[in-house]
Write a protein that binds this DNA or RNA. Structure first.
Lengths: 217, 217
DNA sequence: ACGGCTTTGGTGACTAGATCACCGACAGGT
DNA sequence: ACCTGTCGGTGATCTAGTCACCAAAGCCGT
């Protein structure tokens, strides 16, 4: 079965032969929400390509605090993991499914064969690297120089559904920012005091997106 | 001239043909110390491979504060730049030579040809990615969770020459850490008060490496 | 329905680090 | 000697992270 290749735009341009090769080396796998795809110190031998759902990649400090590094969405691959391992560097991060996830595992041999044969596949892989690295640069910029209120406001806007509701705990928002729960709690209280959000246990509802958006610049 | 290939251990294993190809596409260039190899928003079309000297890659925030992301040493390449541009992401960083630098510029076409033909070259490139990504993870970990005194102590040890002397300004040390000059000044004063270093304008001399090393854990 | 347990969030006191607004001291050039 | 730019020092203030706790809300078993 190679129907999945059509679901990834960047791979549609593969030649028929390369498609067949990819189909032969790729195996569809599935994981439920909340499943750890990679943990600290694990050594996957496959390249993973997400078809549906999202995977969150986060990092934990020695002191137990965590920060979200980036997310792998449908059509993207977890190239960094592969790269870290090719370089014999410990992959100091953890990947967790946020939803039910369908993915394709492509064996190391398959990846190598395709990198050799296909310029399209190479562009796909390198493009993925570039986007991830840009993500990491953004994280560094935010953590080193960003204000916590602006960062929190930005996250609230991106996570809110159409009704402006976010179902999450303060602790999870803190992990998102690499900050502490108390800090997030106090910021949320301040937002509530200003009438920008309303809070209840396990959820936040935005009542003034414009104000949050202003702050998040 | 292809003598430079022997100076990069990872590329010695190339076949004679691939060596010839690499030599044909590579052009040796030179830059003095303090030269900006890439600036913000520049779009290089070559892969750069450093033969001697070091290049510092740093990032500047909107507010003007800077942080050093990593260094490219002899034998390493600036793959991230290339990747960012392949992905059409703005490369939000600046690369500056710290010493006189000799490098080889390999054209995009040459890189593509070698990635196609040579497993050795692919491993070289991917290994480079992995190491850089590990560097960025370390930076994020330090900035998000690390203490400034420990980070400063660690930098002092790595930058010190055999006599324990570091010729640098407080501002440059602050950039190294992504912190502010005043913060570094005060920390250095505290180290001096404890008898771990002595300071003079434009230089720091370590007098108790062991104590600094203890702190830097 | 009750009592315990876990998860979640609230709070005050304190520390670390960043920011702002200065100032003085030194070095190099003319 | 004087001017100028660089470098470092300082206090006040603000923001963020840490620590130690507590209380309320849901969860589960009996």
């Amino acid at each position: 079965m190679s129907g999945w290749i059509d679901r990834i735009e960047a791979l549609c341009a593969l030649t028929a032969e390369d498609r067949a090769l990819l189909a032969r080396h790729g195996q569809i796998i599935e994981a439920p929400a909340g499943h750890a795809v990679f943990g600290y110190g694990m050594t996957p031998e496959n390249m993973l390509l997400v078809l549906s759902g999202t995977v969150r990649v986060q990092h934990m400090s020695d002191t137990g605090r965590e920060i979200v590094l980036y997310r792998i969405e449908a059509g993207q691959s977890c190239v960094l993991t592969t790269a870290c391992l090719l370089a014999d560097e410990a992959y100091a991060a953890e990947a967790i499914t946020e939803t039910k996830v369908e993915a394709v595992a492509i064996s190391g041999a398959g990846v190598d064969a395709l990198l050799t044969r296909s310029a399209v596949f190479r562009r796909f892989v390198f493009g993925g690297y570039g986007r991830r690295v840009a993500d990491l640069f953004r994280v560094i910029d935010e953590v080193a120089f960003g204000r916590i209120d602006a960062r929190l406001a930005a996250r609230l806007i991106t996570f809110a559904d159409a009704d402006g509701v976010i179902r999450t705990t303060h602790q999870d928002l803190a992990t998102e920012l690499g900050s502490a729960r108390e800090v997030v709690s106090r910021q949320l209280q301040e937002f509530q005091r200003r009438g920008w959000i309303s809070m209840s246990r396990g959820s936040v509802r935005l009542t003034d997106r414009a104000a949050l958006s202003d702050l998040s610049d």
